[in-house]
Structures are given as structure tokens and as C-alpha cells.
Design a protein around this nucleic acid. Structure first.
Lengths: 211, 211
DNA sequence: AAGAAGTCTTGACGACTGTCCAGAAGTGCC
DNA sequence: GGCACTTCTGGACAGTCGTCAAGACTTCTT
């Protein structure tokens, strides 16, 4: 009796928690959509609510304040972002295949997720001014660094020579390449994605000795 | 008579124009100061005025609106920014000297102008959302790209081998390196500047064949 | 059926924003 | 000194912002 009651309560409670979490995720998705369109500086809670199917008051039912909402958004962004390239690493059989696959994946990301990535750079920069998101941003940045390093080190393995630089430097180089490509892509240069692909291929080849 | 009157008017007019321009520059300096401290998103005209010795109303006497003020700031930032490394290029006698001088200069810039550069990245990112500053931002970016290329190509000359990549890619790599170092520097890692120096030295060495 | 709990809307609040303007203060000329 | 012009101040404006709370609506429990 107590068990079933307990189970019942737990099930309900969990269901409610799940629904609560689901709605949080749903609202965060609307927020990410709005942020990626307007940028951090011009995004208001009312604008976010208008991009969802709810009114602006509901945001404070699911999030304590704006900082918690955006922090939640940043974390949600990370979840889908970091694992993107891991598929390529495991499926690549040769160094050449990995190189071309990775370069093509970055170019595709540029083409399909440009606005999300300009948001990422926007938020990363915000963290240099406000301390609120800093921890989460640094966490994502490290994840990206590790992801890049998995590519580089696996490529080095396939080639049979060690990488010639450290994980932070490798990440910085690819990130610089991507960011510059993003700038060009969003300002209308239609060769940006393909230039990025070539640049990434070239760079990866240079990162191991005798490649 | 007409001449002297004309001259007089011109002199006065020019003096007034100069004073007008001087005050614009002065206010822009206050604005840059404020922007570099708070970031674009949180900087208001009243805050800028409070960081100057004037009241907030005067900003609209010297600038049509906020966009014109910030555009002017961006251009003023550029003026002192772009020529920074050219001195090193001309004075460097050997490849090794250029490499070390350039790397040390970048590390010094990181240490001494960190907040200004986080503003630069902030504004560059803003230009991906708003079209207002885009033209000026792209102009600065190209200037920086040319500056980097002067270093790289001169280094290649001193070494005696051609560079192995294009100006945009070279700029993207050094920019990525600097931005990552900035992130680390502003989040308290005290090895950031020296790591940047080493990274730049290493990268520059790799950019020419047989270096 | 009725109440309890969860969910959502609506309107209000104080604070802050960019912009504008009337007038004070300063400056140089006759 | 008085006058024209530039420069600057401080307040007012309409709008937007984040936040909050009162109440309506929905969903579940008993």
C-alpha cells in the first residue's frame, strides 16, 4: 500500500519533473533560436516568448531569471554541438579519408549552422565581460578542444607520425579558421565554405610531421 | 579685405572644425574605455558620458546617434591598432629576430591591451548580427590580415623559402591563437601570454617550407 | 463532484534606454 | 559692455527591459 502509493507518487512526481524539464528544453530551444537571430545584446525575454507559443510571463515560471535561462541555453547548445564530429573519427579508415571527412564536416557545419555558431562566438565573448556564463563557456570550449584533439591525434595515428603541437594550439588554429570562414560566409562570400574545407585539409596535413 | 575676411573665416572655421574633431575624438576615447570595460551589450550613452567629463546630452551634439558614435569608435580603434607591428618588421635583421620580436610583441599586446581586444572581438561579432558596423569591421579585419601577411611574407623572405599558405589562412591561424590566449589570459591563467609567445614562434616557423 | 496542484496569461512596477530640446554657460567679435 | 555663435547641461519624452504577482485555466487526486 505504502509501496504503491509511494510508487504512484514517484511516478507522478517524475512525470511532472519530466514535463517540467521538457518545457524548459522547449523554451530554451526558442531562446536559442531567437539568440542566434538577434544576438545576445538585442535578445529580450519578450522576444524569446514571442518566438515560442507561450507568453512572456511563463519564462519566470521555468527559469529563475534571464541568467539561468541563458546558462541553460548554453548547456543545451553544447549537448548537440560537441558530439558532431565523433562519428567521422570512428568511421574513417585511412588518414586521407579522415582528413577529407573532417574538412567536409566543418564546411557543412558552416553552411548549415552558421547562425548558431555566430551565437556561440557571441556568448563566448560575453563571458569575457560577464562572469555569469564563464564557467559553462569554458567547459564547452574545453570539450571542443578535446574533440579537435581526438581528430588530430587519430589522424596522426593513421599517418604514423606524432602531432607537432599541443591540443590548445591545435584547437586555436582550427577555431581561427572556422571563425574567419564564418565571417566571410555570413557576409555573403559564397566560396567561404569551400575555402574552409581546403584550409582545414591543408592545416590538418601540416599538423603531423612528414605528412 | 574679402581675402582677409575670408582667411579669417576659414581660420576660425578650421579652428572650430578642429576643436569639433578633437572633442569627437575625446568622447570616442571615453566611449572606447567604457566599451572595453562593459562590452557592447551593456554600454549605454549615459555610462559613456559618466566616463567622460561631460553630461550625457553632449553626445548628441557631436554624434548623430549611437551608431555613429560607435562607428567612429571602431575607426579610431583601428588607427592605433593596425600599425602596431610594422615597426618590428622593418627593424628585424634576421628571420630568428623577426620571429622572436613578433611573438614577443603579440604577447605584450595580450598583456597590455587585453580589454581593448576583447572589445574588438565583441564588435566584430556584433557585425555578424547588425549590419551597421559591418563595413568598418571588415575593413579593419582586412588591415589586420595584411599586417599579418607583411610579417609572414617578410619572414619567408628572410628564410629564403616561400610561405605555404594564403594571407587569409595565415591571418585566421594567428587570430585564433590570439583569441584563445585572450580567453585564457582574461580568465586568470598567468601562463597565457608566454604560451602565446611560444605558440606564435612555433606557428611562424611552420608557415614556410623547410624552416 | 470538488478541491488541490500545476500551468499559463495578463497587466503592472520601477529602472533604464536613446533621443530630443529649452535654456544656461562659455567664447570671441564689434 | 553687448551681441552672435558655439558648446554644454539637465530634464523630459516614449519606449523597452527584467521581474513579479494576482488570477484564470488545466490537470490530477480523492
Amino acid at each position: 500500500m505504502t509501496q504503491t502509493a509511494g510508487k504512484s507518487r514517484d511516478r507522478i512526481s517524475r512525470r511532472q519533473v519530466d514535463k517540467f524539464a521538457e518545457r524548459r528544453a522547449q523554451l530554451a530551444a526558442s531562446a536559442l533560436q531567437t539568440l542566434s537571430e538577434l544576438g545576445y545584446a538585442r535578445t529580450s525575454l519578450r522576444e524569446i516568448a514571442q518566438n515560442s507559443e507561450f507568453s512572456h510571463g511563463v519564462l519566470h515560471y521555468y527559469f529563475r531569471d534571464k541568467v539561468e535561462l541563458i546558462t541553460y541555453c548554453v548547456r543545451q547548445y553544447k549537448a548537440e554541438c560537441v558530439t558532431r564530429y565523433d562519428q567521422i573519427i570512428v568511421t574513417a579508415g585511412s588518414a586521407e579519408e579522415l582528413k577529407q571527412g573532417f574538412a567536409a564536416a566543418m564546411a557543412d557545419t558552416l553552411r548549415e549552422e552558421a547562425t548558431m555558431h555566430r551565437l556561440w562566438y557571441d556568448l563566448r565573448n560575453q563571458s569575457l565581460f560577464e562572469e555569469s556564463f564563464r564557467e559553462d563557456v569554458l567547459d564547452i570550449d574545453q570539450s571542443l578542444e578535446r574533440m579537435i584533439w581526438r581528430v588530430v591525434s587519430h589522424f596522426a595515428e593513421l599517418v604514423g607520425s606524432p602531432p607537432v603541437l599541443s591540443p590548445p594550439v591545435a584547437y586555436a588554429l582550427f577555431d581561427g579558421l572556422f571563425q574567419q570562414a564564418l565571417l566571410r560566409y555570413l557576409t555573403g562570400r559564397d566560396t567561404a565554405a569551400d575555402d574552409l574545407r581546403k584550409g582545414v585539409e591543408h592545416l590538418l596535413g601540416q599538423l603531423v610531421v612528414d605528412a
